[in-house]
């Protein structure tokens, strides 16, 4: 069960009110798309849920637990960043397995999970490469695979497709939906792209 509840969340940057009393409930396993023009605060909301920003006021609940005072690592979330944030000094395998290693999972388990999500995202053949040797689309897949490997309750995606070309974007979109539905994860997807 990972229902997300956002209660009266507000965020101000100095005098500028970025978010004004947001109330939102996202049901378990729902795929929620936040659509809006650039700079309207949807990324900020996502970052508040992830714990990368602190809300000025309000509460965030995931799966019936209040989490807005926890640090990002304890929230049971995974996030896909707009610029992918694939670690340049690690191979694709180590990137995907990064979070699992942080949980100190045994090697065999890390390998099993990395190979599974790499299969899901069709990047099995890239596991030994470095970020610098990947195309934008491939990096995108690594970023999603890295989030999936955590088997999180909630996956947050911040414009993950905006840096891809149109054709690739359509392909990835369909794929993402399928993969997420299968993994039974609650997902929030932020975009300014009206086609979605």
């Amino acid at each position: 069960m990972a229902e997300i509840q956002i209660k009266n969340v507000a965020k101000a940057f100095g005098a500028y009110q970025a978010l004004n009393n947001i109330n939102l409930t996202i049901a378990d396993q729902e795929f929620m798309v936040l659509l809006g023009a650039s700079g309207c605060g949807k990324s900020t909301l996502l970052r508040i849920i992830a714990g990368l920003e602190t809300a000025t006021s309000g509460e965030v609940w995931i799966g019936g637990k209040r989490i807005d005072h926890l640090s990002p690592k304890d929230r049971g979330i995974a996030m896909v960043f707009q610029n992918y944030a694939v670690f340049p000094h690690l191979t694709v395998f180590e990137n995907i397995g990064f979070g699992l290693r942080m949980q100190k999972l045994p090697n065999a388990e890390v390998t099993r999970r990395v190979e599974r999500v790499a299969g899901l995202m069709h990047i099995e053949m890239l596991l030994k490469r470095y970020s610098g040797e990947l195309s934008g689309g491939q990096r995108q897949r690594v970023a999603v695979a890295r989030a999936l490997a955590m088997e999180p309750d909630v996956i947050l995606m911040d414009e993950p497709l905006s840096n891809l070309d149109a054709l690739l974007r359509m392909e990835m979109r369909a794929e993402l939906k399928g993969v997420l539905a299968e993994s039974k994860t609650t997902a929030i997807y932020v975009t300014h792209d009206q086609v979605k």
Binding site: A50, S71, P72, K73, A78, M79, Q82, G99, Q103, M150
Partner: peptide, 15 residues
Amino acid sequence: IPIELEEAAWTLGCT
């Protein structure tokens, strides 16, 4: 060094 790399690490279980 993009701050996102660090943020990504935080969401992946890093302090």
